[in-house]
Design a binder for these strands. Sequence first.
DNA 1: AATGAATGAGGGTTCATTCAT
DNA 2: CATGAATGAACCCTCATTCAT
Lengths: 192, 192, 192, 192
Amino acid sequence: MNVQSTRAERAEERKVQLIQLAMTLFAEEGWAGTSMRKLAQRARVSQGLIYHYFSSKEELLLQVADHYSLAPVLGSIVQAQEGKQVRQGLLAICRELYAHLCERRDIYWILFRETNNHPDLCARLEGTRCEFIEHLKAYLQTGIEAGELKSHDTQVLAECLLRVLFLASLDSDPPEPLIEVFLDAILGGLLR
Amino acid sequence: MNVQSTRAERAEERKVQLIQLAMTLFAEEGWAGTSMRKLAQRARVSQGLIYHYFSSKEELLLQVADHYSLAPVLGSIVQAQEGKQVRQGLLAICRELYAHLCERRDIYWILFRETNNHPDLCARLEGTRCEFIEHLKAYLQTGIEAGELKSHDTQVLAECLLRVLFLASLDSDPPEPLIEVFLDAILGGLLR
Amino acid sequence: MNVQSTRAERAEERKVQLIQLAMTLFAEEGWAGTSMRKLAQRARVSQGLIYHYFSSKEELLLQVADHYSLAPVLGSIVQAQEGKQVRQGLLAICRELYAHLCERRDIYWILFRETNNHPDLCARLEGTRCEFIEHLKAYLQTGIEAGELKSHDTQVLAECLLRVLFLASLDSDPPEPLIEVFLDAILGGLLR
Amino acid sequence: MNVQSTRAERAEERKVQLIQLAMTLFAEEGWAGTSMRKLAQRARVSQGLIYHYFSSKEELLLQVADHYSLAPVLGSIVQAQEGKQVRQGLLAICRELYAHLCERRDIYWILFRETNNHPDLCARLEGTRCEFIEHLKAYLQTGIEAGELKSHDTQVLAECLLRVLFLASLDSDPPEPLIEVFLDAILGGLLR
DNA sequence: AATGAATGAGGGTTCATTCAT
DNA sequence: CATGAATGAACCCTCATTCAT
């Protein structure tokens, strides 16, 4: 075992540190509001070095997005609930997704905002969004087929669920009982 | 009657034109991406003149926000539905709100994005948001008292409704049947 | 009469001063070697102001080229010699052209060098070059028709004349008797 | 005989490859426009390695100049014509020189342009230029002494010849009959 | 009311070069 | 012999804002 870190390893570490620091600064001042100069100063690194790791400020944004992407976990969140009762399953899915979103609220907020100006970024986010919607639709569909849910437009409903959770997660002090109340409203119906 | 427009009137006209133009440019390139020079050029006006009407670029943003504020109409949207059946009323409220949001999608999107960097702007938007939530809560409450709706947390539900509609309205290609499907889900419940 | 210079006049003066200063600096260090910072400092002016007058560093180069263009005088140089004996005429043309070239040796040298990297500049210079060649060809042709000159390829000869004079003018210490010797060689022939 | 190439041999090979590649890049983008990074990338070599072979970017330029210098051939071009008739000899000299110049047009053009900023480079080029002029002068002188040529200022004429050929060779689209026409004009004279 | 010349700070980016490995 | 991480200065350019006119 080699205790000493190699040069390449330290470089990789540095890159990750830069990404993390960039995320922090982006969250504080936005992407446009964060200068490469400031990033370099905070990282105690020369400006030039940043361009050794990231070819441009835009590329840095993309790498930040990738580093904090939820894509890897979204599938397992839904799949873990298969077989359970729909109400319990949906509750678990929403809670877990919501927890993930809140945890990285700052970065998703800035990524969401930059969506307009950066088509590449938009495409990636849209991609993972669609993937999740598909999983959720499938889950709702199994609920329908199992007779637990009324037949309904799963596409619209999945999108609405995601919208509510995502937008709520952006609030600086997210309301606690949101998920239960909202899900109950949807599942139980409001009409007498 | 004075056919000639007074100085003050012409000044007011000019100001409104500048606000409208600014809205257009903001929508195209964002607030940060729109330079005062570009605004002046497009308005065929000197840079200095803009500062006679708006003390700063930030002030310009605020005035744009005020000019396109939904505050004046939000109250009436809800009040117009009082007395109707809850299902019809909610449907009308959502449709009208959604239509308003879509109409000015571009500007609301940039206002929403600038929320972070401009506390003043944030306060104003938050103000009209709260006001609308209050109206909606009251409407739901009357529905409960009239026996049309189950008792529920009206605050959370009102917020969820607004979130779904607002976020959906930001989509460049908004889904048509969204409102009906979503409302039916909420009103009728999904569980058999 | 208004003794005081208006603001617009002073601005125009300033622009010309900047062009002249730019020419000097370009001559010293080349176009690439002259930074806008240095130009601003030498002109005791902010960097931003330069971009008020010239939209880019390249535009500055073009305006320098235009300001020192020989295009306006080239025609008259040739035309002034019409009617004279060919030997006297060519001598006068060459001397005058050569004098002009030497006078602005520095700027033509840098313009010539930048020819490759700036198609716009190249086109302009090529334009005035062609124009002069045409004048010279016409002059040689009249010499032929008057029976003073042997029939020959006036295009090639005009180009050769210009090449020799131009390249000689770039030498830092141009040889004095060049023109007479060279012209005599061409006119009189070297072969016994 | 040693089939394996020694270290020194392989190093020398590498150096020559770098010089050739540098020439290509210089020709494409100029000396200033070619970064050491780009050179390293194209050579599939680290940036640091280049500094083992060339102490600086300027040194690299000088070595490129040396590698493509015409100095070794210029003498023989003239000497090969000794004894021939002057007209035939001059024609051959000019054609061969012109061919050499055209062949490496790109690199000579950039070397010529960099002349101003690099005194060392300037000195070397000036050296080979003078050397060639001396050879040419001597050739013309023998022509005079042989009675084939009128007595004339051989210095000026040699310089003019070189100027015309060099400047013509820089044209991207060099005129074909240039040499014959020009030489005939000089040799035969234009005046009736 | 209206102009546009002028500022000064800061923007993202590139570069030749060095040096520990 | 060879690497590439790291530097720091300089690059061109843009900007919101001010003020004499």
